[in-house]
Design a protein around this nucleic acid. Sequence first.
DNA 1: GATGAGCGT
Length: 147
Amino acid sequence: MAMKAAAIKLKAAAAPSTGFRALLFSTSRFPFNQPSPAQKPPPAEPSTNLFVSGLSKRTTNEGLRGAFEKFGNVVDAKVVCDRVSGFSKGFGFVRYATLQEAEAGIKGMDGQFLDGWVIFAEYARPRNPSPPTQNGASNGFSSTNFR
DNA sequence: GATGAGCGT
């Protein structure tokens, strides 16, 4: 009947008078500080191996090495590329001869430009050793032990 | 591949 319509009208008429609503929101604090202890810690322990991200997809191993060689003796420099497409994944690794050089490399190259991109250099995490045929056999057997 | 966070065939 007409009562329904009246109720709706009443509800619509109960518009918030300016002031109260803003007060409620102003007192509410956003969860800016997460109580979770699993915050990602600053990445890296010192190592001669460096992880370089933010690379341009045109940057190659030589470009990477050339940029980091100015701060130390680069033993190895590699841009990680997709195995099938061959395109760069946009990050790579640089290995220095000493930790001092690695430190100098980070301080010298982190936040710098390379091929038009800002790159980030940090210590690389230890990697899973899974290169096959490291000692001839990775399954415990070897041809010298097998008859 | 269109400027995109990440830890390596």
